[in-house]
Structures are given as structure tokens and as C-alpha cells.
């Protein structure tokens, strides 16, 4: 087994063989999750705390189910309603939590780098459930697992990531993961939604949707992140849908067996046509959600194993 991480803060730190190890284990958890008895004791006796400083229903429940299936004691902290509002700093919150001896912390935070900062201060495994516009590693891993199961491999594929790249941590993690696994990545979207110098990340950049997805094996749509936009990035949603929304006509430029992905939640009629999203022959959006639980189980299992092997090593304070 190759997985030498103490935390899962981003895809940036992972090596290709670690990604493969994690996905292989996740495959086994997919099988477990499809059984009637879905229980394992991999995390028995361990405490998992989910700290979400930003609203999330889907990711938080996915982590919660993953933890419970592995036998961990799972606790959700609604950070938006708590002490952070009373002026406590992130580090003080982390130190207080640390004193309760959790084994796994799952953190989402609206600021890039906040999860890294927290990981330096606590004495447990930290999983990044999304930090600002930086990374969302479990999303990229679940996307990778979905692709691998649908396409039979995770290399030498043509993958188009379309839409709001600039505000998307999902895009950043996916670009890194799919790049490490040696795929050809295309980014498609209006130039206002492309981050600066993104062309230097080993990707091809297109502002024409049809050209961008032409011949692709995978079409990954991103949500238009209206809540992160502080100015006009696009003229209107209807023009965006017209030029960049995925409908049957645009999808016809991709390979006939191309799969359609979306990290959710979807804005139907903005970035994706409802019929495409619901087309069970093309869309793997429901599988993505299923893979999410398995990938999170695998990630927490691997981190817990490393923790058992080296309980007191490292930078812990």
C-alpha cells in the first residue's frame, strides 16, 4: 500500500500511486455500500468531527455517512452559528477542538489556505472538504473514480472541464489530479471565468464550447458560482446558457460515448440542460454522488491507518 499522507489537504501533495491506492480501496467500498449490510469497523472507536464554515448539505452528509459506515463516532459542528460569530479565531477554535481529542477533522472554509493553517495546529488527521477557491480533493477523487469505472481507465483520456473555472476549487483539484494521471485536459469557458495564466498548467484553453468538447471522452460541467462573483463576469444567464450551457446539440461534438459529469448542485438551464443531466445513458451525475461516499470512506480509512502506525510523529503541537 502506498499512501504516506498525514492529512488530505489537496491533490497537489499526492503522488499518482497514492491516488491509485486510494481509488482501489474506494472500489472495494463501493461494493460494500451496495450490500444490504453496509458496515465496517475501520474507524471503530475513532471520533470524526465535521466542521463546515460554509454551507454544504451534500458534502457534509457524504462525509457523515462515510464516517458512520466505517463505525466512527461522527459529530457535525455548525460553525456558521457558533463561536466564530463571537469573534473567536480559526486557530483558537482548532485548539479547543483539539483538546477534545478528535481523530479525524473534516473542514470546509470559505478562505483558501484556511484548512492548511488549521492542520498545522491540531493533533489529528485533517481532510479538506473545500477551501475557498483552492482545493476540493475528495471531489476530484470521486470524479476520478467515476471516470475510471465508466471508461475503464484513468489515463490518456480527453477531458473537457467547462464553465466557471476561475471561482472553482473543484476545477483546480481536477486539473491537478487528471494532469498527474496523464490525461489531456481542456478548459472551456468565457475568458472572464478563466483564472490568470491558467494556460501554464498543462491544459488547453477554449472559449468556444463546440471546439472545446470536440472528440472528448468526458465532459465535466461546473456550477456557475454566483455567490462568489463580485462583479459582472458574464452578460446574463441566458447568454451564458446559449454559449456555454451543455445541451444535446453541443454534446454531439463530443465522442458518442462521452460521459457527462457535474459536481452539483446543478443550475439547470444555466450550465446544463435538464434532459442531458437526466439522461442515464450519458450522465453519471448520480454515480458521482455514490462514488463520493466510497472515496471519503477510503480517504478516512487510509489516514486512520497511517495514524495508527505513526501516532506521535510529525509537526503536531
Amino acid at each position: 500500500m502506498t499512501f504516506r499522507q498525514k492529512h488530505l489537504l489537496g491533490i497537489e501533495q499526492l503522488r499518482p500511486e497514492e491516488i491509485t491506492t486510494l481509488l482501489d480501496l474506494a472500489d472495494k467500498y463501493v461494493d460494500l455500500n451496495r450490500r444490504q449490510q453496509k458496515h465496517s469497523d475501520a474507524l471503530a472507536g475513532l471520533t470524526q468531527i465535521n466542521m463546515f464554515f460554509e454551507n454544504s448539505t451534500r458534502t457534509q452528509s457524504s462525509f457523515e455517512i462515510a464516517g458512520k459506515r466505517l463505525g466512527a463516532d461522527v459529530m457535525n459542528m455548525a460553525m456558521q452559528a457558533s463561536s466564530i460569530k463571537k469573534g473567536e479565531t480559526l486557530i483558537d477554535t482548532a485548539l479547543s477542538l483539539n483538546a477534545m481529542h478528535p481523530d479525524i477533522l473534516v473542514v470546509r472554509h470559505p478562505h483558501s489556505g484556511a484548512v492548511d493553517l488549521l492542520a498545522e495546529k491540531v493533533n489529528c488527521a485533517v481532510l479538506n472538504a473545500g477551501d475557498g477557491r483552492h482545493e476540493h480533493p475528495t471531489q476530484a477523487l470521486l470524479d476520478a473514480l467515476t471516470i475510471r469505472r465508466a471508461k475503464g481507465r484513468l489515463h490518456r483520456l480527453n477531458i473537457a472541464i467547462c464553465g466557471d473555472i476561475a471561482h472553482s476549487r473543484v476545477a483546480r483539484s481536477n486539473i491537478m489530479l487528471l494532469g498527474k494521471m496523464e490525461n489531456r485536459i481542456r478548459l472551456v469557458g468565457p475568458p472572464t471565468l478563466m483564472p490568470s495564466q491558467i494556460d501554464q498548467f498543462g491544459v488547453e484553453v477554449y472559449d468556444d464550447m463546440r471546439k472545446g468538447i470536440e472528440g472528448c471522452d468526458v465532459v465535466m460541467m461546473l456550477r456557475l458560482q454566483k455567490e462568489r462573483m463580485d462583479g459582472g463576469f458574464i452578460p446574463s444567464e441566458r447568454e451564458y446558457y446559449h454559449r456555454y450551457g451543455l445541451d444535446a446539440e453541443k454534446l454531439s461534438y463530443a465522442k458518442d460515448d462521452a460521459i457527462v459529469m457535474h459536481p452539483g448542485p446543478m443550475n439547470r438551464g444555466v450550465e446544463i440542460d435538464g434532459t442531458i443531466a437526466d439522461d442515464i445513458n450519458r450522465s453519471v451525475i448520480q454515480e458521482q454522488v455514490e462514488m463520493g461516499v466510497a472515496v471519503r470512506m477510503a480517504a478516512m480509512d487510509l489516514l486512520a491507518r497511517n495514524r495508527r502506525e505513526q501516532p506521535n510523529e510529525g509537526v503536531y503541537v
Binding site: 483558501s112 482545493e135 483546480r172 501554464q200
Partner: peptide, 18 residues
């Protein structure tokens, strides 16, 4: 307004306002 780093590859990698 709101920027923390200079725009470019590094800022994009770290997801910081630029």
C-alpha cells in the same frame, strides 16, 4: 480591491484573490 496576491500562475494555484 480585495486582492491578496499578484495575478499569475501562483495566485491561480493557491486560489487567492489577485
Amino acid at each position: 480591491k480585495g486582492a491578496a496576491v499578484t495575478s499569475g500562475k501562483f495566485a491561480t494555484l493557491k486560489g487567492l484573490p489577485m
